[in-house]
């Protein structure tokens, strides 16, 4: 109990410190922090359209983050998440462009293809690690780069618009691939929302209550011992990459279907990297993912408005996010020390 209180205190202390430093930075640029906060708040919550933009950012961010919880639990630094999202986006785009079917079939097909593409790309990172001894961080960075170039290849090559186009986008997807919105105010897609919530619950429960979850944690804590105790660590590692990749792929499908209705260069939009921050922040606890992801999505939506109206640079949001992550990590470390000391007493 006392430990929890200490942790809560430290986390809120970290948040306050991060906000304080940001406020100080804002004042240094001759802006009022209160103004900025108000502008940002309106940017995220002013009306249905603003709120919908937050949700539409939250969906892929949450999917990618929840996927990363799986790999992190297994002790894997899946930097390749961005690439898994991109390949998911590319696969979903193929269906969006060429697979002619009514909406009810086409959209699930896009999602499914996105999941499969992301899963295979994730598996590749796993195989590189297991078969060739390439650390997943290096493998991931390389695979991200390759994925980005695959997207650019399709955009400027086989999928370029008939009129020759501008090498920046494929033609728009078929009308049937347009994601239905819940209403004029709630401009997000119900199916994706349900998939995201379902993924949070499923992964949360799987990690807590199943044998698979247990082996993941065992591998994450100490792969050597787990192996000695009879855990098939290779299979566990590979499955973690595949699950994470599949979720990343669905996130990528959401990006192309929702944000662009076409394939673009860097369709993942850095969301995979942001998801890494989310997971660092919550130290891999699945249940926290949706809340932290929502906060970050709101900060980003807000900062776009701050940039537009106050002409404060948008990178301020990046600074704030970085500060939050940094202070929370530092304070977590401090809290660890403090609570450990308590145990010794």
């Amino acid at each position: 109990m006392r430990e929890r209180l200490i942790r809560l205190g430290f986390t809120s202390g970290a948040l306050i410190l991060a906000l304080g430093v940001t406020a100080l930075l804002i004042s240094m640029f001759d802006h009022s922090p209160i103004d900025v906060l108000e502008t940002a708040w309106d940017g995220a919550f002013k009306d249905g359209r603003r709120f919908s933009a937050v949700v539409n950012f939250w969906i892929p961010l949450t999917l990618a983050s929840i996927g990363l919880v799986v790999t992190f639990t297994a002790g894997l630094w899946n930097i390749g998440i961005e690439g898994q999202m991109i390949i998911g986006a590319v696969c979903a785009s193929w269906a969006g462009l060429y697979f002619e079917a009514p909406s009810v079939i086409l959209i699930p097909t896009c999602i499914l293809l996105g999941a499969i593409g992301g899963m295979l790309w994730g598996m590749l990172a796993g195989l590189l690690k297991l078969r060739f001894g390439v650390h997943e961080i290096f493998g991931g960075v390389a695979l991200n780069f390759i994925a980005a170039n695959i997207a650019i290849y399709f955009i400027s090559g086989p999928w370029q618009p008939p009129e020759g186009g501008s090498a920046q986008s494929t033609p728009p997807f078929q009308a049937a691939a347009t994601l239905p919105r819940i209403s004029d105010d709630l401009q997000f897609n119900l199916l994706f929302l349900l998939i995201t919530i379902g993924a949070i619950i499923a992964i949360g429960l799987l990690l807590m209550f199943t044998r698979w979850g247990l082996t993941l944690r065992a591998v994450g804590k100490n792969a050597q011992s787990a192996l000695l105790l009879g855990v098939r660590t290779e299979r566990v590692t590979l499955s973690a990459f595949m699950v994470c990749g599949a979720l990343g792929g669905i996130a990528g499908a959401h990006r192309v279907l929702q944000a662009y209705s076409s394939l673009r260069p860097s369709p993942a939009g850095g969301i995979g990297f942001l998801a890494l921050l989310v997971v660092l922040l919550i130290s891999f606890r699945a249940w926290w993912v949706p809340f932290i992801a929502f906060a970050l999505a709101a900060i980003i939506a807000g900062s776009t408005r701050v940039k537009t109206l106050l002409q404060l640079d948008q990178s301020l949001a990046g600074v704030l996010q970085g500060l939050i992550v940094l202070t929370i990590l530092i304070f977590n470390g401090l809290a660890d020390r403090l609570t450990r000391k308590d145990h010794h007493e």
Partner: peptide, 27 residues
């Protein structure tokens, strides 16, 4: 004038033209 600079996939990957335009229209 309201302006939004550097709207491109490498500088502002998380922002779409729709986001920016709806902010402008709101104003």
């Amino acid at each position: 004038m309201l302006y939004f600079e550097s709207l491109n996939p490498s500088d502002t990957p998380e922002t779409t033209l729709m986001d920016v335009v709806s902010l402008f229209v709101d104003e």
